[in-house]
Design a protein around this nucleic acid. Structure first.
Length: 574
DNA sequence: GGCACCGCTGCCGTTTTTTCAGGAAAAAA
């Protein structure tokens, strides 16, 4: 057994204990040990042989003995006993949002159903509503949840931030594969929020060895197709990866074709055809002179078509080719344009760092200002600030600002928009703040009309500066709220409110489409990280690229303003 | 069950609201 297999058994045991209603700290200990064994660099068998099992964090006497049993016999008596009690298939049922531990067990024991499919069938046949404590509405909820879950199961795409991890892992392995060059292409390079394939393009004078090296890397779960210059594999992260070796003299053409998107390439090929050029992954040929051309860089290829260089984020077939032909591409926002961050948490609520440390980190990024926007009182789970604590925080920020030069900490709050659209803090408190980010955190499932009215009401408050994570979506996890974004954008524009592009990688909310709509409508956006620790301030990178996907120019992004410019903006609103 | 810091131990992520049903589970950062 290797580390991964041992870790899987430990994790399974933890879940079975959870089903049994075992002490949560006990099962957490198993879960932690699983995590630790799975991620440790040294081989678990070596550790055992050398008597160093307990040097692994989270492995003590009992778990150490259990691992020893596993390695000696390939099984664990404790695991076997637990499995007899409850079938591990129930894990998947509990993975369905809306079905918890108790419900899963209750239904399993009463009806003898085990798999997700069986639960679904039982709900369809109205067998669940007959159980004590469950009724027709819970039954319907279970059915809906399972259907949503199953739809998600067929989803092979993963969120960008996870694909980024896979991509850098691929590049890391490829360092040992005798390559002269290797770069990420595909939808990861375009910063698409959901990714189904990680593309790597490389150059090597030993192609066969390089391809084999990639296919045999630990990244690969199954090799799908392998040819002389190209390999496609299923990775161990539920996403495919493609590695292609190309002619270095034609690097530019290959990068364009391997970056996509399909729609962009369609537009591009058509545009080229109109100019009498035959363009494909195979090459570039003048249809009249029959001359072939190669391009070492993408810029040269676009230039040969009389096009402006089109940045990868714009290559979605949204009219960028036409715009590039007219030299009318937007002057896209860049990372270096960002002068501050309006949505950052400190350890006053659920952040990890002190205000001072956040300020220092932000200044080290070259920012001029940062707004501390901790949660407001009703969001108790995030340790939201009461009015009194918020006032204390404001005082502390004032004192901190007295010691800072060329940098300002703005006083803010991420104030909850309550279910009726009122704000979680009274107006006289909001008025004292520099920045008010208003966000929805509760009752996300309201009907379209209700949720839209609610947000509109918040945007009509004169004290709100920014609408935080406007749709509440979690990539690969939660659907956006059923809000009428068209109307919200209009109201924001009319009332001089700013729409946030929350750069937290699992959110990226506004979506690129909505950024585009907002920019077209003339509304302002701000790109904020929602950082809860210092390193998360770097999430700005995701935000900027997403804004570029929405064609956002610098002058539509609030946090490109200098501090003085920002003050003018804020005072103009009063 | 593991661990840190001394013990005959106590902590490990928390708390309130919503929802469906009539007490209990799930969701929010």
């Amino acid at each position: 057994m290797d580390n991964r297999e041992v870790a899987n058994v430990l994790a399974d045991i933890a879940r079975l204990m959870e089903l049994e209603g075992e002490d949560v700290y006990k099962l957490r200990a198993y879960r932690k040990a699983a995590q630790s064994v799975g991620s440790t660099r040294s081989d678990i068998n070596d550790c055992y042989r050398e008597g160093r099992l307990r040097e692994i964090p989270g492995v003590g006497e009992s778990i150490g003995e259990l691992i020893a049993e596993l390695l000696e016999t390939g099984r664990s008596s404790m695991y076997e006993t637990l499995k007899k009690e409850l079938p591990p298939e129930l894990f998947e049922v509990m993975d369905v949002p809306g079905i918890g531990r108790k419900t899963a067990i209750k239904v399993h024991k009463a009806l003898g159903v085990t798999s997700v499919q069986e639960f679904k069938q039982a709900a369809r046949l109205h067998r669940i509503r007959k159980l004590k404590g469950l009724g027709d509405r819970i039954e319907q909820k279970i059915l809906d949840s399972i259907e949503r879950y199953q739809r998600r199961e067929t989803e092979t795409r993963i969120p960008l931030y996870r694909a980024m991890g896979v991509a850098s892992e691929a590049l890391e392995y490829l360092k040992d594969c005798d390559l002269e060059r290797a770069e990420i292409a595909g939808s990861v390079r375009r910063y698409a929020p959901m990714v189904s394939n990680v593309n790597v393009v490389g150059v090597s004078d030993k192609p066969e060895a390089a391809i084999n090296c990639f296919v045999n890397s630990p990244l690969t779960a199954i090799a799908v197709t392998v040819s002389a210059n190209k390999a496609k594999v299923v990775t161990r992260y539920r996403v495919d990866a493609t590695f292609e070796l190309v002619d270095p003299d034609n690097w530019g053409l290959h990068m364009v074709f391997d970056t996509g998107s399909e729609k962009h390439l369609e537009e591009l090929v058509e545009y080229a055809a109109d100019k009498g050029i035959s363009l494909s992954h195979q090459g570039f040929m003048d249809a009249v002179t029959l001359q072939h051309k190669k391009f070492a860089t993408e810029k040269e290829l676009y230039a040969a078509l009389d096009l402006e260089y089109i940045p990868p984020e714009l290559r979605e077939g949204q009219g960028e080719v036409k715009a590039a032909g007219e030299h009318a591409l937007p002057d896209l926002i860049e990372r270096k344009d960002i002068r501050g961050d309006f949505h950052v948490h400190s350890n006053w609520s659920d952040g990890a760092s002190s205000i001072q440390d956040v300020a220092m980190a932000a200044r080290a990024l070259g920012y001029e200002y940062i707004a501390i926007c901790d949660h407001s009182r009703s969001l108790t789970i995030a340790n939201g600030l009461s009015v009194d604590r918020l006032r204390d925080q404001m005082e502390q920020i004032d004192r901190l600002n007295d010691t800072l030069e060329d940098f300002t900490v703005l006083k803010g709050s991420e104030v909850d928009i309550k279910a009726d659209g009122t704000l979680d803090l009274p107006d006289d408190v909001l008025e004292e703040l520099d920045i008010v980010v208003a966000s929805v955190h509760t009752s996300l499932n309201q009907e379209p009309q209700a949720i839209t009215d609610r947000v509109v009401r918040a945007l009509e408050s004169p004290y709100v500066t920014i609408l935080g994570h406007p749709t509440g979506r979690i990539l690969g996890g939660r659907e956006p709220m059923m809000i009428d974004m068209g109307l919200v954008i209009e109201v924001a524009k009319t009332n001089g409110k700013v729409l946030e592009l929350n750069a937290y990688p699992s959110r990226l909310d506004l979506s690129d489409e909505n950024v585009h709509r907002a920019v077209d409508a003339g509304a302002l956006i701000s790109i904020d990280t929602d950082a809860h620790s210092l390193f998360e301030l770097d999430y700005m990178e995701y935000g900027v690229h997403s804004a570029r996907r929405g064609w956002a120019p610098k002058n539509k992004v609030l946090n490109t303003l200098s501090y003085d410019g920002l003050l003018r903006f804020l005072s103009a609103k009063e």
